[in-house]
Simulated assay, not measured.
Amino acid sequence: MTEIYENAKKGADFIVSKYPENFTTPKVAIICGTGLGGIANILHPDSKVEIPYGEIPGFMKSTVQGHAGKLILGYIGSNKIPVICMVGRFHSYEGYDIKDTVFPVRVFTVLGVSVLIATNAAGGLNQSFSIGDIMVIDDHINIPGLAGLHPLKGHNDERFGTRFQPLSDAYDHDLRFLVYQGAESLEISRSIHEGTYAFVSGPTFETRAECRYLQTIGADVVGMSTVPEIIVARHGGLRTLAMSLVTNVAVIDRPPSGKEKLPEKKMDDGIASHEEVLEAGKAASKDIEQIVKYVVNNL
């Protein structure tokens, strides 16, 4: 863990060397989920500086379609809040160690960021949710973490945080309140829910039985990111907000019986695809961009 801190310091120092003129310590870090890279468009265009991940010491390469793989520094809103925006994230299913996937959040912690906003694309388990709905995360279920794949596993460096990090308050209430306040102020008609996010490793979409299981244990949506980042952010003392865009509705019905001949393509009903995720993200991105802008500008 000591090595992680020193490496995070190197990454932070490099980013500081790229600060725009008169740029101060970023107050907010924003992680853009699959298909939601348009959030970077809300930064003031005349002050933006882009840094490819490949240039930053310790950063991995983003390999997933819909993840541009760059940091953007700049300001958001009329109050010119300094932010650092991560366009694309890292996942353990790409072959990276889980500590590598959260390394950017370690760097943000060393930089002095105080708020992390994470967005993601997720599958809807709650049957009242529809494609295009937004869910503000108020709790999570860390399936890999419960099984031992945890970003805080190993030696604990007190410069980041305590050994046993509580997570009952992981998702900041005041930030969640700002989301609803912003949606009302902006007259956004899209449905916004609160609920529990189930984190799974991926990269396969969940089976029907897995979806029923996750639904039974209390999950409203399921996805392959965000939770490790939130854990590490809270470990470093950052306030956190996370939002899921429901990009597909999980298939929970049992498969048709093999006792009878199957109608053509019946097994394909409701099947998830990455293309569907990207398309739903494109349709809803403008609303999420404006909500994020409102939240950041009112911190």
Rank of each mutant, 00 (worst) to 15 (best):
P263A: 07
T24Q: 09
K18S: 07
G77P: 05
N248I: 10
E210W: 01
G38P: 12
D97A: 11
A121G: 13
K286L: 12
E158P: 10
N156G: 09
T226E: 05
V28C: 00
V49P: 00
I137S: 10
E289C: 14
S17F: 11
F205H: 11
I141W: 03
G77S: 06
P20F: 01
N156S: 15
A183E: 01
D133I: 05
K266L: 14
E194Q: 15
V136K: 05
L73W: 09
K10T: 07
K18A: 08
V296S: 05
E264F: 14
G54K: 02
Q290N: 15
L238E: 02
Y75T: 11
L178A: 14
D287H: 14
K153E: 11
K261T: 11
I81N: 01
D174A: 14
H235V: 03
G37H: 08
T226Q: 03
S191T: 13
D46E: 15
H193E: 12
E289G: 08
E210T: 00
R163T: 09
V292D: 02
V222Y: 07
V277M: 03
L262A: 11
L241W: 07
G202E: 01
G37T: 06
N297Q: 00
L125H: 01
I231A: 02
P256D: 02
L146H: 05
I252W: 05
H140A: 07
S168L: 11
N156M: 10
V296M: 01
A147M: 05
